[in-house]
Amino acid sequence: MVAVVVAILVAAGAGIALADPFGAQTKAAPVESTARTGLARVTEGTLSARTLENGTLGYAGDYQVVDKAGGTVTELPDVGRVAGQGEALYRVDGKPVILLRGAHTSVYRDLSWGMEGVDVKQLNAALVALGYATRDELDPDSNYFGRQTYYALTELQEDVGLTGTGQLPLGQAVFLPTKEIRITKVIAVRGGSVAPGGVVLRASSTRRQVTVALSASRQSDVAAGDKVTISLPNGRTTPGVVSSVGKVATKADDGTTVEVRIRPSRPKATGRLDQAPVQVSIVSETVEDVLSVPVNALLALAGGGYAVEVVEGGAHRLVPVETGLFDDSEGTVEVTGEGLVAGQNVVVPAS
């Protein structure tokens, strides 16, 4: 930042060298300069340090849909289709495979009356969430397959076009940790065979997300909860919040990075583009009720440090200042100096 400021001053012809920068320079005195200049105000308020990064706008999650029964694929969804819990996701041998929400365990066995386990628990929770039973009728936290599970499952099967047996055979349902998915890739071929354990589809959730490959050296500068501003491809901006910062570094051609995930605060404002390039301004630090000036108002002193040139009633005087937080996106810097108050005019290079 010092190099940038010095370069600005040299380009503007407004470099000032003082043998005794903290002597009488705060007194009203003419300041000789042949550079074209303008005026900016000293302001008081909130200042934020920001990190500007390139990111990718898309959808959260990457799920593989694995078929457990095997057979001939007779129907597949289109890429981009959104499928909700309780819907037929695809068909094998003409029979629908149902999408259900469950994050506890993958399906690995047939489920029927009298069985217990975490896989039964996620089935009960899904049936209650879909409205096939109330919480009073069926405890969504129960890991027991009882009478109400049987009745609720029978209704679900009949609604999707299956024979209502009240039993869930292996391969009739797919459990994924989200209530709604968006198809990103179709791997199986309609009319082709799929073996048990074969991947049929890839999908994401429908939650919007921005990912940033952040330099590993800057990992400590960003934390979950930091506020961000997302610059979209259409030129508009929308707010967001850092949801997670990766702890495992990935080596890339341009260095080592960690993945930062960002949740847009207004998902609808981000549109529907997938894998779209965006810019993200991450607020890493904030200070309140401080004085600030444009960065190009800083004058480098020969003895070290900075000053600003204050203009009052036509008189010019130099006020030595200490710098604090820099807001790169706004081009301003926090300053403190004797006699410096909000509303004063300071000299800046003419634009």
Score class of each variant (00 low, 15 high):
Glu312Ser: 10
Lys251Thr: 15
Ala315Glu: 15
Val278Ser: 07
Phe326Gln: 06
Pro267Asn: 11
Ala276Asp: 08
Asp253Trp: 09
Glu312Thr: 15
Thr323Tyr: 12
Val248His: 14
Gly313Cys: 09
Ser265Pro: 09
Arg317Lys: 10
Ala203Phe: 03
Thr237Gln: 13
Leu201Ser: 03
Ser243Asp: 10
Thr250Ala: 14
Val258Arg: 15
Arg236Trp: 00
Phe326Asp: 02
Pro277Asn: 12
Val258Pro: 14
Val222Gln: 00
Glu334Ile: 12
Pro264Asp: 13
Asp253Phe: 01
Leu301Thr: 01
Ala224Arg: 03
Ala307Glu: 04
Ala269Phe: 13
Leu201Trp: 01
Val194Arg: 01
Glu334Ser: 05
Tyr306His: 11
Gly235Thr: 07
Asp289Pro: 07
Gln219Val: 03
Val290Asp: 07
Val311Pro: 04
Val311Ala: 01
Ala195Asp: 07
Gly198Thr: 02
Ala203His: 08
Ala269Val: 13
Ala195Tyr: 07
Leu291Cys: 06
Gly225Arg: 12
Val319Gln: 04
Gln279Thr: 10
Val290Tyr: 08
Val260His: 01
His316Cys: 03
Pro277Ser: 09
Lys251Arg: 13
Val321Tyr: 04
Asp254Thr: 04
Pro267Leu: 04
Leu298Lys: 10
Ala213Glu: 09
Ser215Glu: 07
Val319Pro: 01
Val311Cys: 02
Thr257Ala: 05
Pro267Asp: 15
Ala307His: 04
Ala252Gly: 14
Pro320Met: 08
Val319Asn: 05
Ser204Cys: 03
Thr237Pro: 07
Ala224Phe: 02
Lys227Gln: 06
Val321Leu: 12
Lys251Asn: 13
Asp221Gly: 03
Thr323Glu: 05
Thr250Pro: 09
Gly240Phe: 02
Val290Trp: 05
Arg263Met: 11
Val245Ala: 00
Ser231Glu: 13
Thr237Cys: 05
Val258Gly: 15
Val333Glu: 08
Ala223Val: 13
Glu322His: 09
Val245His: 00
Pro239Gly: 12
Ala224His: 08
Arg266Val: 10
Gly303Ile: 06
Val290Glu: 00
Val333Tyr: 07
Pro294Glu: 01
Lys227Ser: 14
Asp327Thr: 11
Ser281Ile: 06
Gly324Lys: 13
Val283Arg: 11
Gly331Gln: 07
Val283Cys: 07
Ala213Cys: 02
Val200Tyr: 03
Val308Leu: 02
Pro196Val: 02
Gln279Leu: 05
Val241Leu: 02
Ser265Trp: 11
Ser205Trp: 09
Gly314Asp: 00
Val311Asp: 06
Ser292Phe: 05
Glu288His: 09
Gly197Pro: 02
Val293Tyr: 01
Phe326Pro: 03
Gly235Ser: 03
Ser215Ala: 11
